[in-house]
């Protein structure tokens, strides 16, 4: 029986830039940063109070796929093809203001939906996330 999800991975175009984005712009904490080879690292981050769930910032390496597939994947990521998940917060307007002030790009400002209030933002690679405050806004 599956009891928990501990890791999820998303593809980033540049691990160094992604690390900067996730730590400085989102305020995440680094859990593991292990060099794997000359260029790539096993790099996981999490929101500050959620250490039991790690987000793996995965580089796109030619050795993983064919060269063509790797190039295609890079293109798809940067085009904003992949929606990765939903983050929740206590107060979406404050979080939206703060993230905007830090230079995070929102593709949709907070909007009331039937399940709460939701905004959409992109990471530095092009992956997008929903930011939500669930329940009555």
């Amino acid at each position: 029986m599956i009891t928990k999800m501990t890791h999820t991975s998303l593809y980033v175009l540049d691990q160094g830039k992604a690390l900067d984005f996730y730590t400085h712009k989102l305020g995440f904490r680094v859990i593991t940063d292990v060099p794997m080879n000359k260029n790539d690292r096993w790099l996981t981050v999490c929101p500050p109070d959620m250490e039991d769930f790690q987000i793996v910032l995965m580089p796109i390496m030619d050795s993983m796929f064919s060269k063509e597939t790797a190039a295609l994947l890079r293109e798809l990521v940067s085009k904003g093809t992949f929606g990765v998940g939903i983050f929740t917060c206590h107060d979406i307007y404050a979080t939206y203001e703060e993230m905007s002030a830090r230079g995070v790009e929102f593709t949709k400002p907070p909007k009331k939906e039937f399940y709460g209030t939701e905004a959409i933002f992109k990471d530095d690679s092009g992956n997008w996330f929903s930011l939500a405050q669930l329940g009555e806004p």
């Binding site: 991975s9 794997m36 080879n37 790539d40 096993w42 793996v56 995965m58 390496m61 050795s63 993983m64």
Partner: peptide, 10 residues
């Protein structure tokens, strides 16, 4: 991850 992502081959 190490196997699937081809890390061990490099």
């Amino acid at each position: 991850f190490a196997h699937q992502k081809g890390w061990l081959q490099e």
